[in-house]
Design a binder for these strands. Structure first.
Lengths: 201, 201
DNA sequence: CTTTATTGATTGAACGTTCAATAAAAAAAT
DNA sequence: ATTTTTTTATTGAACGTTCAATCAATAAAG
């Protein structure tokens, strides 16, 4: 089997196997042997291509987050308007993109999120992603309301999106992405109604 | 030291130490030795009082969830009205009760939530708690809107509450429970405005 | 013949649990 | 009031298991 140019193939194979293993038994019991078995290779190969288990986990999280960012960016590129409502809607849709909310990805995402509380490297990746979402939302809200109110709306909508993800990852049936999108967009509509309830105290 | 009646004291001591350890290094590295050291006792005592590490973790989660339920129940008992808005408001306030959102408790809660994806016993506890919150919200919404719409509102508000918890557990400063309450109550106000956007498709 | 890819047995560290030993308190006996 | 016995609480070393990482050996491709 040994051919040249295996590196990108094996890396992708192992990242996919990592998500499958975490989906199956959770991060705590996703051992290198189990991951390697999922990929049909030996355990030693993980250290060879990722320097160790931590390297593989970090690469997996990085892939999930970058795919998430790309899903959002793609939807926004397709927009023809500059309306804040449409842009925020695209951000919502991107966050509930089909490829992001399937069982393995969602469960791995939640596992990493919990793990990032105590692993600095994962926390860094998570923070970058979080800041991007918040900044995007904030910028769009800012166009139709005062600064402080925009910030509050951005935090609220981001929390709802995360909450829907969280619940989707836990329920056995997985996330109903259509309903999640509907709920988030309805919340957006209500936030854009000028009612000024959320003006800062 | 050996006195009679140590059981309830040690159990409480060890549960508190468990949260402290998880807050400090995360669930993955909260070993029995570290937990025991936090409580100032030896490692063997954990198996003696809880049958093993799993028993201690389960007891810890059970305590967090029952305290959460009691915080909600207490707020509702204090109500003088039967207005749905007030009752749901009390549910929100109870969920962001001071004693629930302090660092150690919130981090432990999130760690268990993630862990419950693959530990049936923890999943059972989490499901009971989740069902209670959902049923309570649903019942109150039901009094002012049609059934399907009430269910949708209950899911949405529950997701926002969870999302605020999730973000609170991650941010270094911990959860700003006042702002969380404000956001959730504002969302409630908007949901109770009859706009019918959320009628089922 | 050299390079690249891969294996799998081995190693050492870390973990949860067990259990014989110990010590203090409570109860019983003197 | 003492002393002895029983009960309860606790320790910490030992044990077996599991894991990630290593590395010499192997095999195919260039």
């Amino acid at each position: 089997m040994p051919k040249v140019g295996m590196q990108p193939i094996r890396r992708q194979q192992l990242i996919k196997a990592t998500m499958a293993a975490i989906d199956e038994v959770g991060l705590a019991e996703a051992t290198v042997m189990r991951i390697a078995r999922h990929a049909g290779v030996s355990a030693g190969i993980i250290s060879h291509y990722f320097g160790g288990k931590d390297g593989l986990l970090e690469a997996t999280m990085r892939q999930i987050l970058s795919a998430l960012g790309e899903a959002v960016a793609a939807r926004r590129r397709e927009l023809t308007t500059t309306s804040p409502r449409d842009h925020i809607g695209a951000i919502i849709d991107g966050n509930f993109d089909r490829s992001q909310v399937t069982g393995p990805v969602a469960k791995t995402w939640l596992a990493f999120w919990a793990s990032s509380m105590h692993k600095p490297e994962l926390a860094r990746l998570q923070l970058v992603n979080d800041r991007r979402l918040y900044a995007n939302l904030c910028y769009q809200f800012r166009r139709v309301m005062p600064r402080d109110e925009a910030r509050t709306c951005a935090r609220a909508l981001a929390a709802l999106i995360d909450g829907l993800w969280l619940r989707g990852a836990l329920t056995l049936e997985g996330l109903d992405s259509d309903e999640a999108r509907r709920l988030a967009r309805d919340y957006l509509d209500r936030l854009l109604d000028t009612r000024d309830t959320l003006s800062p105290s």
